[in-house]
Design a protein around this nucleic acid. Sequence first.
DNA 1: CTTGACCTTGTAGTTGCTACAAGGTGCATA
DNA 2: TATGCACCTTGTAGCAACTACAAGGTCAAG
Lengths: 132, 132
Amino acid sequence: MRIGELARATGTKAETIRYYEREGILPAADRTDSNYREYSDDHLAALTFVRRARELGFGMAQVRQLLALSDHDDKPCENVDRLVQEQLGEIDRKIADLTLLREELGQMLRSCLGERIGDCRIIETLNRARRG
Amino acid sequence: MRIGELARATGTKAETIRYYEREGILPAADRTDSNYREYSDDHLAALTFVRRARELGFGMAQVRQLLALSDHDDKPCENVDRLVQEQLGEIDRKIADLTLLREELGQMLRSCLGERIGDCRIIETLNRARRG
DNA sequence: CTTGACCTTGTAGTTGCTACAAGGTGCATA
DNA sequence: TATGCACCTTGTAGCAACTACAAGGTCAAG
Protein backbone atom coordinates (compact mmCIF):
# COMPACT_ATOMS: atom_id res chain seq x y z
CA MET A 1 0.00 0.00 0.00
CA ARG A 2 1.05 3.60 -0.47
CA ILE A 3 1.51 6.14 2.26
CA GLY A 4 -2.00 7.60 2.01
CA GLU A 5 -3.63 4.24 2.51
CA LEU A 6 -1.38 3.44 5.46
CA ALA A 7 -2.23 6.84 6.85
CA ARG A 8 -5.96 6.20 6.60
CA ALA A 9 -5.58 2.69 8.01
CA THR A 10 -3.85 3.95 11.15
CA GLY A 11 -5.32 7.40 11.61
CA THR A 12 -1.90 8.97 11.10
CA LYS A 13 -1.03 11.80 8.74
CA ALA A 14 1.28 10.92 5.88
CA GLU A 15 3.65 13.63 7.08
CA THR A 16 3.86 11.96 10.45
CA ILE A 17 4.69 8.62 8.85
CA ARG A 18 7.51 10.21 6.88
CA TYR A 19 8.63 11.87 10.10
CA TYR A 20 8.75 8.50 11.88
CA GLU A 21 10.85 7.13 9.04
CA ARG A 22 13.27 10.06 9.24
CA GLU A 23 13.53 9.51 13.00
CA GLY A 24 14.19 5.81 12.60
CA ILE A 25 11.02 4.87 14.48
CA LEU A 26 9.76 3.03 11.41
CA PRO A 27 11.97 1.16 8.93
CA ALA A 28 12.30 2.83 5.54
CA ALA A 29 9.71 1.69 3.03
CA ASP A 30 10.49 0.15 -0.32
CA ARG A 31 10.11 2.44 -3.29
CA THR A 32 8.15 1.98 -6.51
CA ASP A 33 9.62 2.90 -9.91
CA SER A 34 8.23 6.37 -9.47
CA ASN A 35 9.80 6.71 -6.03
CA TYR A 36 6.58 6.32 -4.07
CA ARG A 37 6.85 4.57 -0.71
CA GLU A 38 5.38 1.07 -0.78
CA TYR A 39 4.30 -0.45 2.55
CA SER A 40 3.78 -4.03 3.69
CA ASP A 41 1.60 -5.46 6.44
CA ASP A 42 4.67 -5.47 8.66
CA HIS A 43 4.82 -1.73 8.35
CA LEU A 44 1.16 -1.54 9.19
CA ALA A 45 1.75 -3.60 12.32
CA ALA A 46 4.75 -1.54 13.34
CA LEU A 47 2.96 1.76 12.87
CA THR A 48 -0.06 0.49 14.76
CA PHE A 49 2.23 -0.45 17.63
CA VAL A 50 3.87 2.96 17.62
CA ARG A 51 0.60 4.86 17.52
CA ARG A 52 -0.89 2.77 20.27
CA ALA A 53 2.12 3.37 22.51
CA ARG A 54 1.97 7.10 21.79
CA GLU A 55 -1.75 7.14 22.62
CA LEU A 56 -0.87 5.55 25.93
CA GLY A 57 1.39 8.47 26.68
CA PHE A 58 4.77 6.91 25.97
CA GLY A 59 7.36 9.34 24.61
CA MET A 60 9.37 8.68 21.50
CA ALA A 61 12.35 7.42 23.51
CA GLN A 62 10.17 4.87 25.31
CA VAL A 63 8.54 3.85 22.04
CA ARG A 64 12.00 3.14 20.67
CA GLN A 65 12.73 0.97 23.69
CA LEU A 66 9.42 -0.85 23.44
CA LEU A 67 10.06 -1.52 19.75
CA ALA A 68 13.51 -2.87 20.51
CA LEU A 69 12.15 -5.05 23.31
CA SER A 70 9.28 -6.38 21.25
CA ASP A 71 11.85 -7.73 18.82
CA HIS A 72 13.29 -10.12 21.37
CA ASP A 73 10.59 -12.71 21.80
CA ASP A 74 12.72 -14.98 23.90
CA LYS A 75 13.78 -12.56 26.64
CA PRO A 76 11.71 -12.17 29.79
CA CYS A 77 9.46 -9.16 29.68
CA GLU A 78 10.50 -7.51 32.91
CA ASN A 79 11.94 -4.57 30.99
CA VAL A 80 8.62 -4.04 29.29
CA ASP A 81 7.03 -4.15 32.70
CA ARG A 82 9.42 -1.58 34.02
CA LEU A 83 8.67 0.84 31.20
CA VAL A 84 4.96 0.49 31.76
CA GLN A 85 5.39 0.98 35.48
CA GLU A 86 7.45 4.12 34.97
CA GLN A 87 4.84 5.46 32.62
CA LEU A 88 2.18 4.68 35.19
CA GLY A 89 4.15 6.56 37.81
CA GLU A 90 4.45 9.62 35.61
CA ILE A 91 0.79 9.60 34.83
CA ASP A 92 0.02 9.40 38.54
CA ARG A 93 2.27 12.37 39.16
CA LYS A 94 0.52 14.35 36.43
CA ILE A 95 -2.90 13.49 37.80
CA ALA A 96 -1.82 14.57 41.28
CA ASP A 97 -0.49 17.88 39.95
CA LEU A 98 -3.60 18.56 37.96
CA THR A 99 -5.81 17.69 40.91
CA LEU A 100 -4.02 20.29 43.02
CA LEU A 101 -4.41 22.85 40.27
CA ARG A 102 -8.06 22.05 39.96
CA GLU A 103 -8.56 22.53 43.65
CA GLU A 104 -6.81 25.87 43.62
CA LEU A 105 -8.65 27.18 40.58
CA GLY A 106 -11.93 26.02 42.08
CA GLN A 107 -11.22 27.97 45.23
CA MET A 108 -10.35 31.06 43.24
CA LEU A 109 -13.60 30.81 41.38
CA ARG A 110 -15.64 30.33 44.54
CA SER A 111 -13.97 33.35 46.10
CA CYS A 112 -15.09 35.63 43.30
CA LEU A 113 -18.28 37.55 43.83
CA GLY A 114 -18.52 39.19 40.41
CA GLU A 115 -17.10 42.41 41.71
CA ARG A 116 -14.92 45.01 40.06
CA ILE A 117 -11.54 43.73 38.94
CA GLY A 118 -9.96 46.08 41.44
CA ASP A 119 -11.48 43.98 44.23
CA CYS A 120 -11.24 40.66 42.47
CA ARG A 121 -9.86 37.91 44.64
CA ILE A 122 -8.73 35.98 41.59
CA ILE A 123 -6.42 38.73 40.38
CA GLU A 124 -5.37 39.22 43.98
CA THR A 125 -4.51 35.55 44.30
CA LEU A 126 -2.52 35.62 41.11
CA ASN A 127 -0.53 38.50 42.53
CA ARG A 128 0.45 36.58 45.61
CA ALA A 129 3.48 34.35 45.43
CA ARG A 130 2.50 30.78 46.09
CA ARG A 131 2.87 29.50 49.59
CA GLY A 132 1.67 26.08 50.60
CA MET B 1 17.56 45.10 41.00
CA ARG B 2 19.34 43.34 38.19
CA ILE B 3 18.08 40.34 36.26
CA GLY B 4 19.84 37.75 38.43
CA GLU B 5 18.26 39.04 41.60
CA LEU B 6 14.83 39.17 40.00
CA ALA B 7 15.42 35.64 38.77
CA ARG B 8 16.24 34.40 42.28
CA ALA B 9 13.33 36.32 43.78
CA THR B 10 10.81 34.66 41.47
CA GLY B 11 12.36 31.28 40.81
CA THR B 12 12.68 32.10 37.12
CA LYS B 13 15.77 31.75 34.97
CA ALA B 14 17.26 34.98 33.67
CA GLU B 15 16.90 33.64 30.15
CA THR B 16 13.19 33.16 30.69
CA ILE B 17 12.82 36.74 31.91
CA ARG B 18 14.54 38.02 28.78
CA TYR B 19 12.28 35.74 26.77
CA TYR B 20 9.19 37.24 28.41
CA GLU B 21 10.46 40.70 27.56
CA ARG B 22 11.02 39.72 23.93
CA GLU B 23 7.51 38.29 23.82
CA GLY B 24 5.98 41.42 25.31
CA ILE B 25 4.71 39.55 28.37
CA LEU B 26 6.81 41.82 30.58
CA PRO B 27 7.52 45.51 29.90
CA ALA B 28 11.09 46.24 28.88
CA ALA B 29 13.37 47.06 31.79
CA ASP B 30 15.31 50.28 32.15
CA ARG B 31 19.00 50.02 31.37
CA THR B 32 22.00 51.06 33.41
CA ASP B 33 24.95 52.88 31.87
CA SER B 34 26.54 49.55 31.15
CA ASN B 35 23.38 48.31 29.45
CA TYR B 36 22.33 45.99 32.26
CA ARG B 37 18.59 45.58 32.81
CA GLU B 38 17.39 47.37 35.94
CA TYR B 39 14.13 46.20 37.50
CA SER B 40 11.63 47.86 39.83
CA ASP B 41 9.16 46.37 42.29
CA ASP B 42 6.51 46.73 39.61
CA HIS B 43 8.45 44.34 37.47
CA LEU B 44 8.73 41.98 40.40
CA ALA B 45 4.97 42.08 40.87
CA ALA B 46 4.31 41.57 37.17
CA LEU B 47 6.67 38.63 36.90
CA THR B 48 5.23 37.06 40.04
CA PHE B 49 1.77 37.36 38.48
CA VAL B 50 2.94 35.77 35.25
CA ARG B 51 4.73 32.88 36.96
CA ARG B 52 1.79 32.21 39.21
CA ALA B 53 -0.59 32.09 36.26
CA ARG B 54 1.78 29.77 34.39
CA GLU B 55 2.03 27.50 37.43
CA LEU B 56 -1.75 27.31 37.41
CA GLY B 57 -1.63 25.97 33.91
CA PHE B 58 -2.57 29.07 31.94
CA GLY B 59 -0.94 29.34 28.52
CA MET B 60 0.90 32.42 27.35
CA ALA B 61 -2.14 33.68 25.46
CA GLN B 62 -4.30 33.47 28.58
CA VAL B 63 -1.59 35.11 30.66
CA ARG B 64 -1.63 38.01 28.22
CA GLN B 65 -5.37 38.30 28.65
CA LEU B 66 -5.16 38.09 32.43
CA LEU B 67 -2.49 40.79 32.44
CA ALA B 68 -4.63 43.02 30.24
CA LEU B 69 -7.68 42.43 32.45
CA SER B 70 -5.81 43.04 35.67
CA ASP B 71 -5.02 46.53 34.36
CA HIS B 72 -8.67 47.54 34.34
CA ASP B 73 -9.53 47.80 38.00
CA ASP B 74 -12.93 49.33 37.36
CA LYS B 75 -14.38 46.74 35.01
CA PRO B 76 -16.37 43.78 36.36
CA CYS B 77 -14.32 40.66 36.63
CA GLU B 78 -16.58 38.29 34.73
CA ASN B 79 -13.95 37.93 32.00
CA VAL B 80 -11.42 36.84 34.56
CA ASP B 81 -13.96 34.34 35.80
CA ARG B 82 -14.50 33.02 32.34
CA LEU B 83 -10.79 32.44 31.77
CA VAL B 84 -10.49 30.59 35.05
CA GLN B 85 -13.54 28.50 34.24
CA GLU B 86 -12.18 27.56 30.83
CA GLN B 87 -8.89 26.60 32.41
CA LEU B 88 -10.75 24.50 34.95
CA GLY B 89 -12.59 22.75 32.14
CA GLU B 90 -9.37 21.93 30.34
CA ILE B 91 -7.79 20.59 33.47
CA ASP B 92 -10.81 18.37 34.04
CA ARG B 93 -10.49 17.06 30.52
CA LYS B 94 -6.81 16.30 31.04
CA ILE B 95 -7.50 14.53 34.32
CA ALA B 96 -10.17 12.43 32.64
CA ASP B 97 -7.82 11.48 29.81
CA LEU B 98 -5.03 10.58 32.16
CA THR B 99 -7.36 8.56 34.35
CA LEU B 100 -8.35 6.45 31.35
CA LEU B 101 -4.70 5.96 30.43
CA ARG B 102 -3.90 4.97 33.97
CA GLU B 103 -6.64 2.40 33.95
CA GLU B 104 -5.46 0.91 30.72
CA LEU B 105 -1.81 0.78 31.71
CA GLY B 106 -2.78 -0.76 35.04
CA GLN B 107 -4.67 -3.51 33.26
CA MET B 108 -1.72 -4.18 30.99
CA LEU B 109 0.53 -4.50 33.97
CA ARG B 110 -1.82 -6.84 35.81
CA SER B 111 -2.10 -9.02 32.73
CA CYS B 112 1.64 -9.60 32.64
CA LEU B 113 2.91 -12.75 34.31
CA GLY B 114 6.60 -12.16 33.85
CA GLU B 115 6.73 -14.44 30.87
CA ARG B 116 8.85 -14.32 27.76
CA ILE B 117 8.30 -11.28 25.59
CA GLY B 118 6.95 -13.59 22.91
CA ASP B 119 3.97 -14.33 25.17
CA CYS B 120 3.79 -10.92 26.79
CA ARG B 121 0.30 -9.54 26.97
CA ILE B 122 1.64 -6.02 27.13
CA ILE B 123 3.38 -6.23 23.80
CA GLU B 124 0.34 -8.03 22.47
CA THR B 125 -1.93 -5.24 23.66
CA LEU B 126 0.29 -2.63 22.07
CA ASN B 127 0.00 -4.50 18.81
CA ARG B 128 -3.77 -4.39 18.83
CA ALA B 129 -5.44 -1.33 17.42
CA ARG B 130 -7.49 0.37 20.08
CA ARG B 131 -11.13 -0.51 20.28
CA GLY B 132 -13.33 0.82 23.02
C1' DC C 1 45.94 42.83 36.98
C1' DT C 2 43.60 38.92 37.15
C1' DT C 3 39.84 36.09 38.70
C1' DG C 4 35.13 35.24 38.94
C1' DA C 5 30.43 36.35 39.00
C1' DC C 6 27.53 38.66 36.55
C1' DC C 7 25.58 40.77 32.39
C1' DT C 8 24.78 41.37 27.02
C1' DT C 9 23.20 39.62 22.28
C1' DG C 10 22.18 36.07 19.09
C1' DT C 11 21.33 31.49 17.62
C1' DA C 12 19.97 26.86 17.95
C1' DG C 13 17.96 22.94 20.44
C1' DT C 14 14.00 20.62 22.84
C1' DT C 15 9.12 17.34 21.67
C1' DG C 16 6.23 15.50 18.31
C1' DC C 17 4.52 16.62 15.05
C1' DT C 18 2.08 19.96 11.32
C1' DA C 19 1.93 23.04 7.41
C1' DC C 20 3.39 24.71 3.60
C1' DA C 21 5.81 25.19 -1.22
C1' DA C 22 7.25 23.55 -5.57
C1' DG C 23 7.23 20.01 -8.30
C1' DG C 24 6.56 14.87 -10.16
C1' DT C 25 3.10 10.75 -11.04
C1' DG C 26 -1.03 8.14 -12.20
C1' DC C 27 -5.49 7.60 -13.70
C1' DA C 28 -10.10 9.00 -15.39
C1' DT C 29 -12.50 11.74 -18.39
C1' DA C 30 -13.69 15.27 -22.46
C1' DT D 1 -4.49 13.82 -26.63
C1' DA D 2 -5.12 16.94 -23.22
C1' DT D 3 -6.37 18.14 -18.88
C1' DG D 4 -7.74 17.86 -14.37
C1' DC D 5 -7.40 15.96 -9.98
C1' DA D 6 -5.72 13.22 -6.27
C1' DC D 7 -1.79 11.58 -4.86
C1' DC D 8 3.19 11.41 -4.13
C1' DT D 9 8.14 13.53 -3.50
C1' DT D 10 11.65 16.63 -1.00
C1' DG D 11 12.82 20.39 1.87
C1' DT D 12 11.97 23.99 5.05
C1' DA D 13 9.73 26.43 8.66
C1' DG D 14 6.45 26.78 12.41
C1' DC D 15 4.10 25.59 17.00
C1' DA D 16 4.77 26.24 22.94
C1' DA D 17 7.52 27.77 26.28
C1' DC D 18 11.32 27.79 27.25
C1' DT D 19 16.57 26.17 27.70
C1' DA D 20 21.33 26.00 26.42
C1' DC D 21 25.00 27.61 24.60
C1' DA D 22 28.75 30.83 22.50
C1' DA D 23 31.35 34.94 22.41
C1' DG D 24 32.02 38.78 24.51
C1' DG D 25 31.40 43.16 27.92
C1' DT D 26 31.34 44.90 33.14
C1' DC D 27 32.44 45.20 37.83
C1' DA D 28 34.12 44.39 42.52
C1' DA D 29 37.50 41.95 45.27
C1' DG D 30 42.07 40.31 46.24
